[in-house]
Design a protein around this nucleic acid. Structure first.
Lengths: 258, 258
DNA sequence: CGCGCATTTGAGGACTGTCAACTTCCGTGG
DNA sequence: CCACGGAAGTTGACAGTCCTCAAATGCGCG
């Protein structure tokens, strides 16, 4: 690992409250590796030997069945992935693929498991991270099953807006076809969904989107803190993950009741 | 807690490899409570003060948005629920409702968190349980997004068959309307899906279903170990959970590569 | 300038949800 | 024992959503 990366990794929720000794032991057995775009890092069904830490670039997690494919999430730095498989030493349930050039830190799964057994603080941090991942997936399912395509897109725009500080315009961080997959629809339908949102003051210009009529849009979207993880309620979380949309929840060490 | 329940609780994966001392400390602060059918145990958005352990009956976990409702899973004894919210001391993302008369052990969330901090073995067991829950949800999402209604039903029948030992007939463990919700469709469509499966040798008689033409049915269903958690591949897991369909994965302590 | 790729638009079809009517099953009470 | 009422399940007609295929448009880069 490069010295410049150490602080970024050290700041991961998974190492919160963990002793330097454990941190060094775990990250000692770690490779920093670079991957080109469109590279499959891990195939569904493969045994998982490493915990991956995305330091640069974008990674898509996807699942397939009978030549259909679905995107589960898109990750951005700094975040970890396939932690659950590492903890159980089990096969991957989803594939991981780079969307751009990526820098990824690979930490030995054995080292993770050993450190968990020896350091309760680390095991607790892992459990907290997994809890956040679990809750992220619950949000994903609710978003998917309870909302239609247009509603998902509208809420996605609000999520982007919240992350960019809350102006009246946002910038799409992905190609539209990637965004479509992320939102669980085809590129064609994403296009139509944008067209529909035109009636709610959404003006698209390439990757730039202006949101006039925020009120109308919000009445349609009805963002919900139990799905969207951004809506206003109490002090915001300190260490928010950077996964797309239904990011995992990282809560402050004190355990605010979010 | 009643003495007769102790062994059942002790056998939970969450207490695997945990010292008697920790076990007693955690379960010391626990109530055993009985609930009638159709009782809401927990509402979305509520703070979560207890870990729930279902000892008898059935519990449905569901989410809502804008007067739509979706069933995430149905639990059967013995299993725990809302562990993730307990670990993070966060609000519930889904509601829990009894489907029948239930016996539920309620364990103090504070006790859980304290024990995790003090006993690495317990924290590891919790992390493993959470990993299984996470992977269960990944399976759920793949099942939901990649398969159509008829395919979900066909695979559900195979799951039932595998759980009941593998004869050529199965018994539906829920009312059809509950089953429909579990499979993510309306009762009407479940009915039609059964009708469609008639062409694949599925004969329904109330809650009893005969599967002649297993070959045809399997060609349609294409069960997949990365979704269904039952298909034949290597030695089976020892401590399989009892949640419906996409049960959480509980793996043997040795960490078989499932 | 022109090619290739992403995006958009249109038409048609498959799947799923909604509403309403009908049948079946089951428990209650006469 | 039988009749009734209610709930569950089924069936049919219809609408809405989403997907697929095909073609047109727009955009960027060589």
């Amino acid at each position: 690992m490069r010295p410049t990366d150490t602080p970024k990794v050290r700041a991961l929720p998974i190492f919160a409250n963990v002793s330097d000794e454990t941190f060094n032991r775990v990250t000692g057995a770690a490779y920093l590796q670079r991957f080109p775009a469109n590279t499959t890092l891990l195939l569904e069904g493969d045994p998982v030997d490493f915990l991956y830490v995305l330091l640069e670039g974008q990674v898509e997690l996807q699942g397939t069945w009978k030549d259909k494919e679905t995107t589960l999430t898109i990750l951005r730095p700094v975040s970890t992935f396939i932690l659950a498989a590492v903890v159980l030493d089990a096969d991957a349930l989803m594939s991981a693929r780079t969307l751009e050039r990526c820098e990824i830190l690979m930490i030995s799964g054995d080292a993770i498991r050993t450190a968990m057994a020896e350091d309760a603080r680390f095991a607790v941090a892992v459990a907290r991270e997994l809890s956040g991942c679990y809750r992220g997936l619950v949000r994903t399912i609710k978003n998917q099953k309870l909302r239609g395509g247009v509603e998902r897109l509208a809420n996605y725009l609000f999520t982007l807006r919240a992350k960019s500080g809350g102006g009246d315009s946002v910038h799409l961080p992905h190609e539209k076809r990637v965004l479509a997959a992320l939102l669980g629809m085809t590129p064609e339908n994403l296009s139509r969904a944008f067209a529909t949102l035109g009636g709610y003051g959404v003006e698209v210009n390439g990757a730039d989107v202006r949101l006039s009529k925020l009120g109308d849009l919000e009445r349609l979207a009805r963002p919900d803190p139990l799905i969207d993880n951004h809506a206003p309620r109490g002090p915001s979380l300190s260490a928010e993950a950077d996964a797309e949309i239904w990011s995992t929840e990282h809560q402050r060490a004190g355990g605010a009741r979010s």
